[in-house]
């Protein structure tokens, strides 16, 4: 998995925004991750603990908000929640589906302390 590269990005983004806000320390980081993103929370956390050391993000808590995958059917325009990875539209049986939600992969906000 590519959690190492992902964790590096999280650190870079959080640090840049914290500096812009003239913060002394980052305490919390809120991430939004769709169900279709192949990221394992535990291994990001594992890399994070080591990587954030000696940075403005040291000790910051990572929060993962998981978003349920929703598909849009191209044939009947119906929308449904995806339970497994491979299911047809429950209304019409079509597999012509596009992702309506569940591929999110962004940092929503951070919480920082200012002196």
């Amino acid at each position: 998995m590519h959690e190492l590269a992902v964790t590096e990005s999280i650190l870079e983004i959080a640090t840049r925004h914290a500096q812009q806000a003239e913060a002394a320390r980052v305490t919390d980081i809120y991430l939004v991750i769709g169900q279709l993103s192949s990221i394992v929370d535990d291994s990001v956390q594992f890399y994070w603990d080591a990587m954030a050391e000696n940075t403005i993000c040291h000790g910051a808590q990572l929060h993962f908000k998981r978003i349920q995958a929703r598909m849009l059917c191209q044939d009947c325009q119906g929308e449904f929640e995806l339970a497994s990875q491979l299911e047809p539209c429950p209304a019409c049986g079509s597999y012509r589906l596009t992702v309506a939600a569940g591929d999110e992969f962004y940092m929503e906000s951070i919480e920082v302390e200012k002196i």
Binding site: V6, I10, V112
Partner: peptide, 17 residues
Amino acid sequence: MTVNRVQVVENILNAND
């Protein structure tokens, strides 16, 4: 010491993209 929430909304792979 004050605690502030900073809005980010940035794609995690933004730098790559």
